[in-house]
Design a binder for these strands. Structure first.
Lengths: 212, 212, 212, 212
DNA sequence: CATGAATGAGCGTTCATTCAT
DNA sequence: GATGAATGAACGCTCATTCAT
């Protein structure tokens, strides 16, 4: 399936890991090439510059996240509550399953040079709008009763995004539980009446990783 | 009044602005010195290294934030709801009023070298605990009824922190409103019954800055 | 013939000349690169650091000197007097023919960093032992009759080493003469009876270079 | 007695120790000032530059050595053998008792800038001549019978100078013994007939320090 | 395609020295 | 006379990138 040579994937993986952990400017292309097990010249064979490598990673990550959202929304139908739940679920899953890519998407955009950064910022606004639309629709329809829909939207987005920073697969809650809880919290913030906690048992588990 | 020489403050201000905007590794000390209007050698007269400058900035910011929290908590008494509100309020205010410092505190810790980073991470855990303690106390006392106190805590922290990224003083809401709303949202998430929206009028304002 | 790129040899030659003349710390890598006619980056392509360049030079010089001693000793058989003469001859020739390298070997070891310096000092002790062994053997066998073999050994070593400081190829004596004289002086100090001055004609020539 | 302030001596002592051990260019004036316990500005109060400090140290050391030689020669009368013995003795004592200064005098002259270096080299030639004169006189008078007086002179000088590198006060031989032995070796090299080993007992002691 | 050699610019840092007080 | 602040130049070294093969 992969038309690209073998080194290509290793390069993306190595760069993603390093950029996510230490930041674009802290990582040299020699380190990336070495971590990927390819020569410096091979790196430049695949990507014309360090910038291009970053841009490719960010857009690839965005593509993946966007596709997951589109799929979830397609299944959700027209109900604003179900649509918002779809976005929250897709986002939480992406932040948890692809935390490395998520950290890059959230933190490294500033390392893009001017033109590419603007293109990327536009895609981030699209992502923000995927939350905004069902919320505004639900508020307009009267099914979301929060007096502060903007603050609620920001809170929901921030909560989903934060998953990338603290979630560990070996934590106490399953990923499915995490998704459910976040949807429940979002409904709570929105003042959505039909919401119920999925699990009846009170969860008192403690997270492993630092969540601040 | 200032016992330190003049260039000292300008150096901290310039470094803080640059680190917050572009990241530690993207900023050269020559840029910092130039932005502060001092010579490169003068910078080294005040701080022995770029690392030390970063560490000084992070600890100074943490000191400031910590002091604001301590003051707010001192006024809050023993009620868990009031204590949580104090921490939320202090955090939101700090993130809004000192957004530059906040971005540095949240994003640049990873640029610290090993030992100093550990010291700093410990202070971040203390900050996290300032949220955890009133929440756990309120849950134990039965006044917070959320089934997911850990997820709620993370959500509250993430929402407060996010303020640093999107808040602009010239936005539609006053800072006092922003604080009230965030306390209201926190109470909502916690299932705290005595909460009421401070303002009766539905807010439909739109944020200016990108909030994703 | 040379598998190494062209710049490599020029670099070693330039560094050796500069270190010998002015000392490791007085020479900048930019000066070395410029003297070798290569760029600063090229220097770092061949050697990872200034230290590594020094270490390479010192070990290469030591290898050369060691090989010359080994060859001379192999020809000398078992007689202590002939063995001592072999070491004196090899040393005097090396000090004269490779005076630049010799000055580096004698003066720049202190610029090595800890670990490498210890390795190098061990090789210097080996070199010292190459004098000590035939002297002690000859003393034990009764063919060297000096009452102060340790002081004699030090004097012989010092005399050989000093050649690097004062010898000039255009001086009045040939190198073969210089070797003979030094062997004669060594035998004289040791109280070795069979010695004779090789040349019957009294030499009254004056050295050119400063010999203090 | 000292008309100079207290810091002055400490400065000379610290600089001498550092220069002797690590070399002029490896030592910063900040290190010297710190080691002497004086401020950087104080250093510049006493000496206008690092160069001047080095020159002062070298000339001071030379003055001391010269005075010791003059005193010994004054006692020696006119006999070439006694005069040579006086110079050897004074030199060995100076190299042993002031080994730090001696190492500086021998190794750091190259760090002097042009004019001062020439002045210093002239003084080194004077020192060399203090050996040359009695040797040539003894040869002319027929009391020194060596066929190679120049090589002998260089050997004697090298042997005396080497004392600074290997002598330790806690070694097996007393300094008086060391002087005697060196005079004996010098007479041996010169073919001076009246010489006798001072101590009748064969010495088999081993030196402690590395003597290569 | 793929490689090792090579580059110029810039990095964080230290240097000997000077200056105001 | 003595101090801390400040400086410009240079240090050893690494950077992203290019080139010849």
């Amino acid at each position: 399936m992969t038309v690209r040579p073998a080194g290509h994937k290793a390069l993306l993986a190595a760069a993603s890991a390093q950029f996510a952990e230490r930041g674009y400017h802290a990582v040299s292309i020699r380190e990336i090439a070495a971590a990927a097990g390819v020569s410096l010249s091979a790196l430049y064979h695949y990507y014309p510059s360090k910038q291009a490598l970053l841009a490719a990673l960010l857009h690839e990550g965005m593509d993946d996240y966007q596709a997951r959202c589109a799929e979830a929304l397609a299944e959700a139908g027209h109900d604003p509550a179900r649509r918002l739940a779809a976005v929250v679920g897709a986002t939480v899953r992406y932040r948890a399953e692809r935390s490395e890519a998520s950290l890059m998407l959230m933190n490294e955009a500033r390392a893009l040079e001017d033109e590419e950064r603007e293109r990327y910022r536009a895609r981030q606004r699209e992502a923000s709008d995927r939350f905004r639309q069902p919320i505004d629709a639900g508020v307009a329809a009267g099914i979301f009763t929060t007096p502060y829909p903007d603050d609620v939207r920001r809170s929901i987005i921030a909560s989903c995004n934060a998953v990338a920073q603290w979630y560990r697969p070996d934590g106490p809650d399953s990923l499915d539980d995490l998704v459910e809880h976040n949807i429940f919290l979002a409904y709570t913030l929105l003042g959505y009446e039909r919401r119920t906690p999925t699990s009846k048992v009170r969860q008192l588990s403690r997270a492993r990783a630092d969540d601040y």
